[in-house]
Design a binder for these strands. Structure first.
Lengths: 137, 137
DNA sequence: GAATCACATGCAACAGTATTGCAAAGTTAT
DNA sequence: ATAACTTTGCAATACTGTTGCATGTGATTC
């Protein structure tokens, strides 16, 4: 039944369990970055800590990436199939100040940055805040 | 004695009190963005909430700006004299993954971003992670 | 100078998110 | 079936941020 998902999990060396399939499904379905709490809300009786550890596993295995958008909670979103969470895969994120949703702007890679002497680039987190298409008017 | 600092505070319509002078001094002295906790550490017996409210006041009056660098704690840094915390004053921040220090790259304004249709820019938070000049080797 | 007022501070309590220890349940290999 | 290992659920805790309330302090008015 959830063969598709299992395949995705196994591709990233994650043992597919019921829990993991469900969390994956939620992330896949929502098409945006979700916080631990938001994911928890989509289930009836699932432990926060379980989801927390599931997300941690996913992140370690590069299945998802996390964004700290300044909303107070870290949010998680699926990586693209070919994502290696390397520098080239970094993209902008957009936090809507009205609805609180965080969108991955995956087609907007972050630009090269010329850092001052002595600074060494490892990673970046570029978050833009404003209103999203759903909240215009 | 702290006339210089008082002047800065009054310029921004902040009544200068002992507490506020001290917090300002700490921020000024450190030349980098500090978390509430880090500021608290530099005093002996000062209430967290007092510093918290002092920072809030400073921020309301545009004396400081805050950065959420993803380290788990929001950090605060003095604005430049002519800063109005408007879009033009936004700059990159750099979080060192070794020492945990957050540097304001004030001479690096963030670039204009072309957002997809429907997205409306209000604010931005660009944090680069890596190693800082003090932690090379 | 005393009464009054506005604001700042300190204390304590609380809220939200993240995180861990431990035991039970489930899975895999032998 | 047993042993070894992994995942899950529960409970407890840590950390950061935040607020209510009482007290203190300085400015203002009379």
């Amino acid at each position: 039944m959830s063969n598709e998902i299992d395949k995705k999990l196994e591709q990233k060396n994650i043992k597919p369990t019921a829990m993991r399939e469900l969390v994956y499904e939620v992330l896949d379905k929502n098409k945006k970055a979700l916080s631990l709490y938001e994911i928890e809300q989509q289930f009836e009786n699932v432990e926060r800590s379980t989801i927390f550890r599931t997300l941690k596993t996913f992140q370690d295995k590069l299945l998802i990436h996390s964004v700290d958008d300044g909303s107070g909670a870290v949010k998680y979103a699926l990586c693209d199939d070919d994502c290696t969470c390397s520098l080239d895969d970094l993209h902008y994120h957009f936090l809507c100040t009205k609805c609180g949703q965080t969108h991955c702007l995956k087609n907007m890679p972050i630009p090269k940055v010329d850092l001052p002497e002595g600074f060494n680039f490892e990673n970046a987190n570029f978050v833009i805040k404003g209103t999203c298409p759903n909240c215009q008017g």
